[in-house]
Design a binder for these strands. Structure first.
Lengths: 217, 217
DNA sequence: TTGAACAATAGGGAAATCCCTACTTCGGAA
DNA sequence: TTCCGAAGTAGGGATTTCCCTATTGTTCAA
């Protein structure tokens, strides 16, 4: 089996030392470098391209989120495994958006790390059980948000038509031309929409529509 | 330990028999009823309220998705564990939207079922490893879609701050008061935002932000 | 150290939006 | 039939937003 080249990024040397020790129990893993923050990582990457980066999130100077983004921008083939000491909802999302392949707690056991490395190396993803729980909670939140959208006001056909056009970004004049009525009439329909939804201007009407998923984008 | 009341819903009697047998190895689980499709389940529920429903997805008459929706509408406290023979992307999403607490493959092992029951009974979620893989793939798709959307413009801190407030529905005057600058200055920042995003007015700026998930709601 | 570039501030005038009022049409109830 | 309410139409005047211009302060490189 070929060796998997790994870089560790964490601001605590003790953690890096311990983690390197742990990784040494996998003969096919080779820790080629370390970095103590995002900036250092970017410098290191100029001369050393690993297969996998273990990336801490909380770090001085350039944190894990930013470092991941920049690293992937320059080297899109990098695989990044995010490491965190605790479950932070916000970071999870940011790291996923940054494009990491895996997200684990630092106190995972050795089998989990092995699974993660092999999975990621072969092009997959890995999320530890706690993360999955968080994700599924999130999904549930999404669901309940969708369910509780009731008692929406009743719009007339014309109002619905105009609301759609508003949410596509058209102004009063443009809408008027499109449906062959006076801009003044468009304004009147908008007033009715304001009243029914309880908002005070077009911007808030659009926000209302997106929030209640009356229109989709 | 109190007993956990369970109902099985599946159109194959053989599977129900086998599954009941499996569940009997948990002394704290009591299979109080069975149903062979969604309609039957709804009838059964009139006299029997379980803690957990094991719900097959592919069924005649009323399928698992519809049955889950209707059951949860009438009895919102029900916990539903969705069962499927294969990984179907589409059903997964539909079942999650319907509000199930767990989603598992039928050929999961006994330990997994135990985990799922206990997790769900105590108010949590459970998704088997294969489902998680699917979910994480989905997330990755979302991410890569986001990346290739377009390179988002770079906003200054002040611009980000104002964009947030705009998307919360505040007008120029209100924003000005909130951050202690002149309404005119707010307008200037908005102009910059217009230019950077390529839109022509506030409404379109809000639409842009929601579409590109720059702000979340 | 002196520009150059950029962020943040703000004013004046033009344009779009918002509020109030009013007219027409049409379908159902008295 | 007549009347009333709801939906669709539109105008005048106030308000807000938008565009152009301009000043100040900061950073960074020549």
């Amino acid at each position: 089996m070929e060796t998997i080249k790994v870089i560790l990024v964490d601001d605590h040397k003790i953690f890096r030392d311990g983690f390197r020790l742990l990784l040494q129990s996998f003969p096919y893993v080779d820790v080629i470098c370390e970095a103590s923050n995002g900036l250092e990582l970017l410098k290191v990457l100029e001369d050393n391209i690993p297969d996998i980066i273990f990336m801490d999130i909380n770090m001085p100077h350039v944190d894990g989120v930013e470092a991941s983004k920049r690293a992937l921008e320059k080297y899109p083939d990098l695989k990044i495994i995010a490491l965190t000491t605790f479950l932070d909802d916000d970071y999870l999302e940011q790291m996923l958006m940054a494009g990491v392949e895996a997200y684990m707690l630092k106190n995972a056991d050795i089998e989990e790390f092995e699974k993660a490395i092999l999975k990621v190396y072969s092009g997959g993803n890995y999320f530890s059980a706690e993360i999955v729980a968080l994700l599924s909670d999130k999904l549930n939140i999404l669901r309940s948000r969708k369910v509780q959208q009731m008692e929406l006001p009743v719009f007339t056909d014309r109002e619905k038509e105009i609301l759609e056009l508003i949410c596509k970004g058209f102004g009063n004049k443009e809408i008027a031309e499109k449906i062959f009525i006076s801009p003044k009439t468009v304004e009147k329909h908008k007033s009715s929409l304001f009243q029914k939804t309880g908002v005070l201007n077009t911007v808030n009407l659009v926000i209302f529509s997106f929030k209640h998923q009356i229109v989709d984008f």
